[in-house]
């Protein structure tokens, strides 16, 4: 067996290579799109893109934690819609309400939704796909029932609420600012706190996590609750940004979020995933969303293209993994 130092560097190289590769891909893509539509790299459009990506990337960081524990959460689109709807209904009933209170309401609803799913998975021992699939529908149904099937549209919302998405803090758009703050917090959380590392431990090997005294149920509950809370926050941001709350808000958006994570190198089999990867994954995905219409790709093509990108990303991941394993074997001299 040759020196393990080399092994290690091979593995870090691969993950660095992936992130670099994605970055290069992003640059090449922007150049190509820019050639076809000079508006693409305008300040305005970049701003727009960052704002769009902000919501996706906030959700993706929560989803990363869930996937690291070997789970999946399909319910976030519904959680987002439910909390967006409830906070929109509250502000339209009390127009003087401070926007921060509206955000708090949304986050509280999201926290409850996520906490229920977390309990089902940790205490009820449900497979995450079943728990989140079931609650996805329950929350979606609730959204329709609460709103009575009606929309909350722009004129029913006070300006202060709609300003959440358009205002800026320290000269940076609020959405983007919030995303940065959340990323800084989570970077510290997953790398420098015990609980953060325990999330990786649970995903990497649940049995030894149990033996070393980690409270697995608590960790599982925690990641789904965090996911729900972030979805709640995004619900308010979403409704404020589009200035409308509907029953079918963000339907199917969970797939984009999962895709962003997978693109960013979060392993579906659990235990690994990096904050930096998720940023790049969300950026790339957000860019695709923005760039396709700008080069006159029909909106009807977008879904299929996104699907293919996701599939290619997961397959490339799988192939790279296979290659690394084979190379490690080859390096052993017989």
């Amino acid at each position: 067996m040759k020196p393990t130092l080399k092994n290690k560097s091979a593995i870090t190289n691969i993950s660095r290579f992936r992130e670099l590769g994605l970055l290069v891909f992003i640059i090449v893509l922007s150049v190509l799109v820019q050639l076809r539509n000079p508006n693409f790299l305008s300040i305005e459009n970049i701003n727009d893109m960052l704002r769009n990506t902000a919501i996706l990337s906030i959700l993706a960081i929560g989803m990363m934690l869930v996937i690291i524990t070997r789970g999946i959460d399909l319910s976030i689109g519904s959680t987002l819609a439910l909390s967006g709807m409830i906070s929109a209904l509250s502000v339209s009933a009390n127009p003087e309400m401070h926007p921060v209170v509206a955000i708090m309401i949304g986050m509280a609803i999201g926290l409850m939704c996520g906490s229920i799913i977390g309990l089902l998975i940790s205490k009820g021992k449900l497979p995450p796909i079943i728990a989140s699939l079931g609650m996805m529908n329950a929350y979606r149904g609730l959204t329709f029932i609460i709103s009575g099937g009606r929309w909350v549209s722009a004129h029913q919302m006070p300006a202060s609420f709609k300003n959440i998405a358009t205002s800026s803090i320290l000269g940076i758009n609020t959405l983007f600012f919030l995303a940065i703050v959340i990323y800084v917090i989570f970077f510290y959380f997953v790398n420098y706190t015990r609980t953060g590392r325990q999330i990786y431990a649970v995903g990497s090997n649940p049995e030894s996590a149990m033996v070393s005294g980690i409270n697995i149920d608590k960790i599982l509950w925690l990641v789904y609750t965090i996911m729900g809370t972030l979805a709640g926050l995004c619900g308010v941001l979403w409704v404020s940004k589009f200035a409308s709350a509907q029953g079918d808000t963000a339907m199917g958006y969970e797939l984009s979020v999962i895709a962003a994570c997978v693109l960013g190198g979060v392993s579906i089999s659990g235990g690994s995933g990096k904050v930096s990867g998720v940023i790049i994954g969300s950026l790339l995905f957000g860019m695709l969303d923005n760039a396709l219409p700008m080069i006159n790709v029909s909106p009807f093509w977008q879904q299929a293209i996104q699907g293919v990108v996701i599939l290619v990303a997961v397959i490339v991941n799988a192939i790279v993994k296979q290659r690394v394993q084979r190379k490690n074997l080859m390096r052993r001299k017989v």
Partner: peptide, 15 residues
Amino acid sequence: QTILVIIGLLLVFSV
């Protein structure tokens, strides 16, 4: 839409 809630809950509880 009520049916969505019921089926969702049914799925969760039956498992």
